[in-house]
Simulated assay, not measured.
Amino acid sequence: MARDAPPIDAYGDGGFRVAGARHEGSLLIVGDAAYDWPVRRREDLDVESLAAVFAAGRAQVEFLLLGMGASNALPTREVRDAVRAAGLGLEFMDTPSAARLYNVLTSEGRRLACALIAV
């Protein structure tokens, strides 16, 4: 895993199990910390909800992996533009795929932030 990136052990039933601990609702992982994330549906995703990602900066995060819920959806232009302006890459997909990809990428040592809307 990259640094001490916490693994996603399971997802579903409205939450996640990360490093053995259950998180109800959506999840944001930046560096070695997992946080409850107030975004409950893709319409709630905005630039402000990603403040912790932007605060971490490029030294800690090279790109943002977004899990958009049960199906894939394009984030708003505002979110895409803010991620680009911060100098970060952006990948988005449905949450189950993003949770699996997060584990693969962190095992390869990639520096990423992961924001997942619960399914």
Rank of each mutant, 00 (worst) to 15 (best):
N72P: 10
T76L: 01
G69Y: 05
D13P: 02
S26L: 08
F54Y: 08
R100V: 03
L45C: 10
L112R: 01
R17V: 15
A59T: 13
R58S: 12
G57Q: 11
P7N: 12
A70N: 08
L74E: 11
G87H: 03
V104D: 02
E108S: 13
D9Y: 06
G87E: 04
A113E: 04
V53H: 03
S49G: 11
V18S: 04
A55F: 11
A33S: 11
G25I: 10
E91G: 01
V79E: 00
G25R: 05
A52E: 15
L116V: 09
D4E: 14
A70Q: 07
E43S: 15
M68Q: 01
T76A: 06
G12A: 09
F63Y: 13
L65D: 03
M68F: 01
R17D: 12
G57M: 06
G20E: 06
G25W: 06
A34F: 04
R110Y: 09
L64K: 00
R58V: 11
A70P: 15
R84P: 00
G15H: 10
A33F: 02
P38H: 10
A59Y: 02
A73T: 04
L65P: 03
A113C: 13
D44T: 07
L64Y: 01
R3Q: 12
G31T: 03
G12V: 06
A10Q: 12
V119G: 03
Q60M: 13
A86R: 01
A86T: 01
E91M: 05
A98C: 09
M68I: 04
V104Y: 06
E43N: 09
V47M: 03
Y11W: 15
P38W: 11
F92S: 05
F63S: 08
R77S: 10
L105I: 10
Q60N: 07
I29H: 05
I29C: 03
P7M: 14
P7S: 14
A73L: 07
W37E: 06
L112W: 01
A56H: 11
T95S: 08
A98N: 04
A70G: 10
D44F: 08
S49I: 13
L27E: 03
N103D: 11
A73W: 01
D44H: 15
C114A: 13
L27R: 05
F63R: 07
R77C: 00
S97T: 13
G109V: 13
A113V: 13
G20M: 12
T95M: 04
G89V: 15
M1Q: 09
A5E: 12
D44A: 08
T95H: 06
G14T: 06
C114P: 14
R110K: 14
A86E: 00
D81M: 00
H23F: 15
L28H: 05
L66S: 01
M1C: 07
D13V: 10
